[in-house]
Amino acid sequence: MQSVTLTINGKPVTAEVEGRTLLVKLLRETLGMTGTHVGCDTTQCGACTVLFNGDAVKSCTILAVQADGGDVTTIEGVATGEELHPVQEAFRTHHGLQCGFCTPGMVMRAIDLLAKNPRPTEEEIRHEMEGNLCRCTGYHNIVAAVQAASGQTPIGH
């Protein structure tokens, strides 16, 4: 076991982990932060996406020890009190979810995308969101939500 210290949603957190402990396991099982979902556990679905030092990463494919000293933002950290993050609000307004399981990862990926590319085209949104799967196949409204969150007219409106 070794000790890691991370900043998670702005707060310093220290925990004892094994070398093989994944960041998502630290979040969900050690810290009880279950907003980050595990959909596939094989680096494909993106449900476990968090921001690590400002970049979207799949928290099922980074070791907690690799993240030691870093800055992690999860879905629990994006709203301000009762006020949703603009991306969360856009997903709500445009029904960018069906069952909702993929939504935390979709929102975190979209936040990263818009931080780096504030007004992406529809094609860029679809390409940049490829690492997030929606098994309900609700992609249309997800794209619409990302467009709306970037201040653009959503497709189909």
Partner: peptide, 9 residues
């Protein structure tokens, strides 16, 4: 390559 999250690592 891969997807955005993969390209970030």
């Amino acid at each position: 390559i891969g997807d955005a999250q993969v390209r970030n690592r």
